[in-house]
Amino acid sequence: MPVASAAEGDAMHVDHPELDRRTLLRAGLGAATVAVVGSQLALPAAAQAAPGADLDWIIGCDEWGARPPADPLSVSAIPTNKIIVHHMAFPNVTDYSEAQAVKLAHDCQDLHMDGNGWSDTGQHFTISRGGYVLEGRHGSLARLQAGDRQMISAHCPGENGRAIGIENEGTYVTDTPPEDLLDSLVTLCTTICRQYGLHAHDIFGHWDFRTTLCPGAQFYRLFPAVRRRVLRKLGTHLSDVPARRWPDLWRFVSSPAVRVAQYLLAYRGYAVTPNSTFDAATVTAVADWQARNGIPVDVDATLTAPTWETLAPELDTHATGLPVQAVQFILNWKGYPDVVVTGEYDHATRKAVQDLQALHGLPRNGKVSTSTWCALVGGVVRQSFRHH
């Protein structure tokens, strides 16, 4: 059975359910979760939503023969606000059959339960390379049908109570997923958006919220195209897309984008070490920056849109120093190996910035505008939906 490394996939990340309790406390809901008893969810009447779309195309846990959860699972008491897409760091098999998809679901559940010690499969849904969509964590399909709250999961610490996790079979650091997988990903993301009231600009990658090589650099390059397809299926008008949708990083996540924020906080004079960990010094600096700039101070140091937009300086190709180091670090992490962190805006950096700008429909001028910063740290810009 393949085992994903901590750097490449989700399999070996530690499950931190306490992060979700903090999420609930932050929302003023205490431990207002709902236990799963067998396959039944005892939700309060107010939480019940009207039945949603026909989801018969998703292979449920009972259908693929999932093991029962080792411990009771819970339903989140806070709203879902994003989708996080993963690759599994499993082999890129050429067996596209339903039998392989079922084997994949079993292998993943066994790895998560027996290897990681989790209660069940970590993610909500799984997509095979043949395009089969399977329920991962028990209860996820019922919650999707209801469109009210999600199962608290284990796919991304800090986001497990508010992000739907989708695992995709394969490893996509240097390869791209098959078309059947991409087609099913678009269909599943569209369905999740409809059921939970989300948008195409609410689709992110795992490494936007966690220090990992998942979902793989080549897969991640396809995300703007995936979002465009979801936008079209949802029928969303371009005017309803925000100019920029920044990743809402907060003190319970660690990721390459956190290090970018740390570089920028250090540039602004704060004693913060760029280490990708949302540590106490970073929390203090974010709160101080928000207060000094008339931005509401977030109790969990969330990097809100006004925080990012005041923190990130626009750079031309003559820039030097910490902001350029931030750009170079995130470019190198996200698939531009020729970019080295020097603090000098060299040719390799400019070329990579221009490539990123083209990918997101931004002017290919090599200057790091606010929208380019947004794309760099994993956010979504409106221009990416105009781009074809």
Rank of each mutant, 00 (worst) to 15 (best):
P2E: 00
A4C: 06
S5K: 15
H13C: 06
V14D: 15
H16R: 11
L19E: 04
A32M: 12
T33N: 03
Q40N: 04
A47S: 13
D54F: 07
W57D: 02
E63C: 14
L73E: 14
S74N: 03
S76A: 15
A77C: 13
I78N: 01
K82N: 13
K82A: 15
F90M: 12
D95P: 04
Y96I: 03
E98L: 01
Q100A: 07
V102H: 12
K103G: 11
G115I: 14
W118A: 02
T126A: 15
G130H: 13
H138C: 03
G147H: 08
R149N: 12
M151W: 03
A154N: 10
A154I: 07
G158D: 00
E159Q: 13
N160M: 15
E169N: 07
V173S: 11
L181I: 07
S184A: 07
L188W: 11
I192C: 02
F209H: 01
T212L: 02
L213A: 13
A217S: 01
F219T: 01
Y220P: 00
R221V: 14
R221M: 08
R251Y: 02
V258E: 10
Q262P: 00
Y263S: 01
Y270Q: 03
A271E: 10
T277R: 05
A281C: 09
Q290K: 02
V299D: 07
A301F: 05
A301P: 06
L303Q: 08
W308Q: 02
E314A: 04
D316T: 13
T320G: 01
G321K: 02
P323I: 09
Q325G: 03
V327W: 00
W333V: 14
Y336G: 08
T342G: 06
H347K: 05
A352V: 02
P363L: 12
G366Q: 06
W373P: 04
W373S: 04
C374Y: 09
G378Y: 11
Q383T: 12
H387G: 10
